[in-house]
């Protein structure tokens, strides 16, 4: 379904302005203090293209930090269930970096298969992702190490890649993307598919972190019990920020919140870094120390998820690295663990 168009630089703003007037809600990167964040657009002037990546991944627009999955009302000794209200509006999210879009493709596997989670899936179905390739990766970025690239298309419906003065190369990747292009075709010049290879190579050349992590970690009993976990986790405070800023972390808790008349059952973001995460009612905790919890985080991303779903659960955005209050670094950890794994192969 690969088709290419070009979007002239001066047409971009016009297109966004028309999108803003359309029935679709436009969500795009905007400056907020020091940060750039995804916000519903009020005026096109608020949209910024001057960012390496947004403060938060786009995850929360599909899987919010807290949301009701059920409402109920007490009726005598009975209970009446209600479906939670979901604001279901067609949306376009513009300017999603390839790493964060790839994060959505990963979340799709969890939420959108084998028992569809309608809250996530409905939002996904109603949202068109316009990706924006990355030309100037940050020092903390390592997408190529995990098998992606600054111009990777996974998870985007349309992907715009800046091609200098010529404007943006537009890749149409899904039916949703085709639909958007069909509606706004007059902004896009038809043309031959130009190669984005040079842009990709130039962006990759700017990346300092280029280790080979894409093959994942091969788990063995020796590796699982290895002292390296205690070593790498020693600093960990168990604050959970790494999970909250992660485009792919999706663990959640389900709790009730009620009053005398009824209540809501909410699902809230959770983190495997928290000590209560796996603690049984009996007090038994399969992961009693922070090293076992951090081991879970690393192995879930680099071993367990790949075994189950055939791809890593890390997109190399580097947010967990830059946000960690004690400078823990999953990129360095994965390398160190792979080194331990490698030693086994040599002996």
């Amino acid at each position: 379904m690969m088709a290419c168009r070009m979007l002239r630089p001066e047409k971009l703003e016009e297109w966004l302005a028309e999108l803003l007037r359309s029935e679709r809600r436009l969500i795009a990167p905007q400056r907020q203090g020091e940060d750039v964040v995804f916000q519903p657009v009020q005026t096109v002037d608020d949209i910024t293209l001057d960012y390496i990546n947004t403060r938060w991944p786009v995850k929360a627009w599909f899987f919010p930090p807290s949301e009701p999955v059920l409402r109920y009302r007490y009726q005598g000794s009975g209970v009446e269930l209600e479906q939670p209200n979901m604001a279901l509006e067609p949306r376009v999210i513009f300017g999603v970096r390839p790493c964060d879009a790839a994060g959505l493709a990963i979340l799709d596997q969890v939420f959108n298969s084998d028992g569809e989670d309608e809250f996530y899936t409905r939002r996904r179905t109603m949202t068109t992702i316009v990706g924006l390739s990355c030309t100037h990766p940050a020092a903390s970025c390592f997408c190529t190490s995990v098998g992606l690239s600054p111009t990777a298309s996974a998870g985007s419906d349309l992907l715009l890649t800046p091609m200098g003065d010529a404007g943006y190369l537009v890749e149409t990747l899904t039916a949703r993307g085709e639909q958007l292009l069909w509606e706004y075709g007059h902004y896009f010049a038809a043309g031959e598919c130009r190669s984005k290879e040079a842009v990709t190579e130039a962006a990759e050349a700017r990346m300092s972190r280029q280790a080979a992590l894409a093959q994942g970690i091969e788990l063995s009993e020796r590796l699982f019990e290895h002292p390296i976990w205690a070593e790498v986790a020693r600093k960990c405070l168990g604050c959970g920020v790494c999970a909250y800023v992660c485009p792919t972390c999706h663990c959640f808790d389900i709790v009730d919140d009620s009053d005398a008349w009824g209540g809501v059952r909410c699902r809230n973001w959770d983190s495997c870094g928290f000590s209560l995460f796996t603690r049984h009612a009996s007090g038994h905790n399969p992961r009693p120390q922070q090293d076992s919890r951090y081991r879970q985080r690393v192995l879930h991303k680099f071993s367990y998820f790949p075994q189950r779903w055939g791809r890593l659960m890390c997109v190399g955005c580097g947010r967990c690295v830059t946000n960690c209050p004690v400078n823990m670094d999953i990129y360095a950890t994965a390398q160190a663990v792979l080194q331990v794994q490698g030693v086994k192969h040599e002996t």
Partner: peptide
């Protein structure tokens, strides 16, 4: 195995033992 669970559907990420989800 009686691991702590929340969703029961292989999504909430709580009950895994290695690559295995106790709930699934």
């Amino acid at each position: 195995l009686e691991n702590k669970m929340k969703c029961g559907l292989g999504k909430c990420g709580r009950c895994n033992v290695g690559p295995v989800y106790v709930c699934k």
